[in-house]
């Protein structure tokens, strides 16, 4: 790994000069990103700045037009040890034409790489993952009948069930109530203390703020900030915003940070 020579910590996520084009749209325009072991990196940026596209390129869903992405030291592909990577997509219409239970969906998180069959004791592991997101009693419920926030937590459980070393989350708490956000932050705190590395796309730092060690802000397909987490803006005075310290970084973030404020709750 190139980065490991000049940094003592091991690089777990690495993007170098990543470009992604969708038709005529140049969505990622040369993104460099490094996440080292033990870091909790927040990926911020306005709607349409390329956050989800970047994350999808890192996990292999999008094939970058140019540049390279590496996970855990291996180029994204079959060489990656996927048992150590958990991915939480933005809540989507995913789910097919047949209803499935929370247990079935979370269990699919136990399959990765060449593991095509569920391991022994999968029921206990699925139950434990559902417990972690506070849905321990909902294993038998069909996912499509759960609320949006609960469905989001099912997706988090699906990523946690394989006990990953690296967790990549795309707006995991969008549309999730504050109590659940706090529970999620507490779970993350415990996992991070145990050595979990996190790359999380967020619209605002919210309950995760105390955990975030570094923030990367995307703007128009490029990294416009990489460093200390920006403080929330002064005009945040709703429930859930406990940390309202004016900060010099606000000015550099300007309109992008303002755009982050708009969308979190339904």
């Amino acid at each position: 790994m190139r980065m490991s020579t000049d940094h003592p910590a091991v690089t777990v996520v690495e993007a170098r000069a990543l470009h992604f084009r969708a038709g005529a749209s140049h969505i990622l325009r040369g993104v460099d990103l490094t996440v080292r072991r033990g870091e909790v990196v927040a990926l911020l940026g306005a709607n349409g700045s390329g956050k989800s596209t970047l994350v999808k390129s890192l996990v292999g869903i999008n094939a970058p037009t140019q540049g390279e992405a590496r996970l855990l030291g291996a180029p994204v592909g079959s060489g990656v040890d996927w048992s150590r990577v958990g991915y939480v997509p933005q809540r989507s219409g995913a789910g097919g034409g047949i209803p499935s239970t929370a247990q079935e969906v979370v269990a699919s998180g136990l399959l990765h790489g060449r593991r095509l069959r569920l391991p022994r004791g999968w029921r206990e592991r699925v139950a434990a993952a559902l417990d972690q997101v506070g849905l321990g009693d909902r294993g038998g419920d069909p996912v499509h009948l759960l609320s949006g926030g609960q469905q989001q937590r099912i997706l988090i459980a699906r990523a946690l069930v394989r006990e990953p070393d690296l967790l990549i989350l795309d707006e995991p708490v969008a549309g999730v109530d504050v109590a659940s956000q706090e529970a999620f932050a507490a779970t993350m705190r415990r996992l991070v203390d145990d050595g979990l590395t996190v790359l999380v796309v967020l619209h605002e730092l919210g309950e995760l703020e105390p955990l975030v060690t570094r923030a990367v802000v995307l703007g128009h397909g490029k990294v416009v900030h990489d460093g200390a987490p920006p403080r929330p803006r002064e005009d945040h005075d709703r429930a859930g915003h406990r940390h309202q310290h004016p900060h010099a970084d606000d000015n550099t973030l300007g309109e992008q940070a303002r755009a982050l404020d708009l969308e979190v709750r339904p």
Binding site: K56, I61, G77, Y87, A94, S108, L111, H112
Partner: peptide, 9 residues
């Protein structure tokens, strides 16, 4: 997409 992101074939 999740299956791809899990490295499944």
């Amino acid at each position: 997409e999740f299956a791809v992101a899990s490295g499944l074939p």
